[in-house]
Amino acid sequence: MFKKVLVVEDFDVINSGIKIALDEIGIHHVDYISYCDEAFLKIKSAFLKGEPYGLIISDLSFENDGTPQQLKSGEELITKIREEFIDLKIIVFSVEDKPYTIQNLYKNLKIQSYIWKNRNGLKELKKAIYKSFTSSEFYISPELHAAIHPKKAVEITDYDLSLIKYLSLGFLQEVISEKLKEKGITPSSTSAIEKRLKFLKEHFNANNPAHLVAIAKDFGLI
């Protein structure tokens, strides 16, 4: 198991939970850092001393308390780490669930695991640590599986983009129906709109219309 771990997290209550989880799997040499700049310097210093970390566990978002920081997010920290320490194992532990963000970390920054910080997060974190130590296979929380294993690709039409755009403007389905009728766009019935939006939410693994709009923005569709 990993002998030395660095946790980059700025909430003490989360750190307490992580500490308990690491203790339970026999990891006791753990350092906790609240700032990304300091975390990178800690990683580099440990490497230069010949006492490198075996694993980094990092959040993605950090509160701005006024302390000047060059690296303002976990994603920026991980990008910086990968510039110098390409083989260092990294687990992201975050509430962030945007597919674009997860795919970037998985495909481009080559993290080992992505764990969603929810009620099962610490349990999944322990699984991810074990998986990262024993295997090169990527591990992700089951709830986010679709982010890296999307359903069969389908064509997103101009009609779909119009529906999402109207949603982003706060229009209800009845109003969207009237807007489509005014422009001569079919199908324009509320039932057809509801059916297509249901399909789009399922395809993009969106929880609700607002989530669908957010995902569409992440992918640059609107």
Rank of each mutant, 00 (worst) to 15 (best):
K80Q: 12
E24I: 02
D10Q: 02
N118Q: 05
R196N: 10
L167S: 01
K195W: 08
I102G: 03
I43D: 00
S188I: 06
S189M: 08
S34A: 09
T186D: 12
I115L: 10
P187G: 04
F199P: 13
P52W: 12
S61I: 06
Q103M: 10
I90Q: 02
D158Q: 15
K4T: 00
S45I: 03
Y130P: 05
N205W: 08
C36E: 03
K44E: 15
D65G: 09
K107P: 02
D158P: 14
Y130S: 10
K152R: 06
T186S: 11
F171A: 12
G26P: 13
N104Y: 05
L200D: 01
I90S: 02
H203N: 15
K4N: 00
Q103D: 06
L6H: 04
A216T: 00
E38K: 15
P142D: 07
I20P: 00
N15W: 10
I86M: 07
L60E: 03
L221C: 10
L180H: 03
A46E: 02
E24N: 09
L144I: 00
D10V: 01
I91H: 09
N64Y: 10
A128E: 05
L180W: 03
E202P: 01
L88D: 00
N64W: 09
I27Y: 06
K151N: 13
D10A: 02
A39N: 09
T67V: 05
K4V: 00
I78M: 14
S16K: 04
V92W: 09
F204R: 04
F133D: 13
P68L: 02
L144C: 00
E9L: 01
K49Y: 10
D87Q: 03
I115F: 08
T186V: 13
E202Q: 15
N15D: 07
K151M: 13
I111E: 04
A206V: 14
A128H: 04
E178I: 09
F138I: 09
F133V: 13
F138G: 06
F40E: 01
I90V: 08
I81S: 08
Q69M: 13
G17P: 01
F138H: 09
Q69H: 11
K49M: 13
I115M: 08
Y159W: 11
E51A: 06
Q103T: 07
A39S: 08
I86V: 07
E178W: 11
L167K: 01
F62E: 04
H203F: 15
A46P: 00
L125A: 00
I148K: 04
K80Y: 11
E51F: 08
F62G: 01
K181R: 13
V8K: 11
E137Q: 14
K183F: 04
A146V: 07
E84Q: 10
F40M: 14
F171T: 11
N207D: 11
P142L: 05
D97Q: 14
F62C: 05
G220L: 06
E194D: 11
Y53C: 02
S58W: 00
T190Y: 07
E84M: 08
H203R: 15
T134F: 12
I140H: 15
K198E: 14
S141P: 00
S135D: 13
K198I: 11
I176P: 02
R196D: 05
I57S: 04
F93G: 06
L161V: 06
T101S: 14
L48G: 00
I115K: 05
I156E: 03
